[in-house]
């Protein structure tokens, strides 16, 4: 089968667009979708300058998604004095698994000569996920603890490094799954939060309150948190993996031994089946979801979102007296 662009041997077929592409045209397509998302989301504001550059913190786990994101952002912005990239890896204390992916992170950041920081649950919270998964004092999936701890550290270090934005490697499949989960749970307010936290475009100086080139803008940034964005969210997971493989990137490809998001797994299977029968369904889910989530954000958050205070134990930004991370750390320590 031949590439529809140049006639070379095709390495992939995107059923949703009907295109066959060779390795070269496929990789260029992934890069251009990512760069278009960076532009449409207005990640780089007009007032960024070599004297006052933007700092973007990339959550780099060493898995395929964050490795591909880091590589493409580096290729795009390494020579741009308006952007400084910093990669942050979080070691959760998962024997073997995270040690190997850390080595992928080091290979990549050494190769790209990129600033790389490492923080650990052990040093930050005096716990390791291997122990949390066994003790499980709250009777939850390990991912539920780990997600709270990880988000806490990403926010903490984004603020510490004075980052303007926090970028993560979520892909199209991740976002379509989250969208469907919010629908199925009937949680419209969560859609509003999702939109303002990471989906909406950043308003530009000339945009006022309107949309930016058809992309809805965030109603209110997520309180004092460093705003997040997901430049890979137009690229299907399978294509992110193929890009990593074709570019021979040092991505770590082992499943987390504690992975247990059963509900998300059900949604993932549902989406695989739907995409088989109706190519393009993930894209259309996200197109509709973003519009609906933007409307929900205007309805729920026009007043500026919830009131935030400081956690009385760690000082982190929270809507509670004691933040969720401190509650979970206490539960784990008490169970010891």
């Amino acid at each position: 089968m031949d590439c529809d662009k140049c006639g070379d041997e095709a390495v992939m077929h995107a059923a949703y667009s009907g295109l066959h592409m060779c390795a070269d045209h496929f990789c260029r397509s992934v890069e251009s979708r990512t760069r278009r998302r960076v532009r449409e989301d207005n990640l780089l504001p007009d007032d960024a300058s070599p004297d006052d550059p933007e700092t973007w913190l990339i959550g780099l786990s060493g898995g395929k998604d964050s490795v591909v994101l880091t590589q493409i952002l580096h290729d795009t912005f390494a020579e741009d004095p308006r952007v400084e990239l910093v990669a942050l890896t979080i070691h959760e204390g998962i024997e073997g698994y995270r040690d190997e992916s850390l080595s992928a992170c080091l290979d990549l950041t050494d190769d790209l000569d990129l600033r790389h920081e490492l923080v650990t649950y052990e040093e930050e919270f005096d716990l390791r996920m291997d122990d949390v998964a066994v003790e499980d004092p709250m009777d939850m999936a390990p991912c539920a603890y780990c997600g709270v701890f990880r988000r806490d550290l990403l926010s903490k270090y984004a603020a510490e490094y004075d980052a303007d934005k926090l970028l993560t490697g979520h892909n199209l499949d991740d976002e379509a799954q989250t969208a469907l989960m919010n629908f199925f749970e009937g949680d419209v307010e969560q859609m509003a939060k999702h939109f303002d936290a990471s989906l909406g475009a950043f308003p530009g100086a000339a945009d006022g309150d309107g949309d930016r080139d058809g992309t809805p803008t965030r109603v209110s940034t997520d309180g004092p948190f460093v705003p997040r964005a997901k430049p890979l969210r137009d690229v299907p997971e399978k294509e992110v993996a193929l890009y990593a493989q074709l570019k021979d990137l040092p991505a770590h490809i082992t499943e987390c031994p504690h992975a247990s998001e059963a509900y998300r797994g059900e949604i993932q299977q549902l989406l695989f089946d739907m995409e088989e029968r109706h190519p393009g369904v993930r894209h259309s889910i996200m197109a509709g979801y973003e519009d609906l989530a933007a409307m929900a954000a205007r309805a729920y958050r026009d007043g500026g979102g919830p009131e935030y205070g400081e956690c009385e134990r760690c000082g982190a930004t929270t809507t509670r007296a004691v933040c969720r991370k401190c509650s979970l750390v206490e539960a784990v320590q008490t169970a010891d």
């Binding site: 898995g63 395929k64 993560t168």
Partner: peptide, 8 residues
């Protein structure tokens, strides 16, 4: 056949 691995 290479399986996709979830996670970042």
């Amino acid at each position: 056949v290479l399986r996709l691995i979830k996670g970042g």
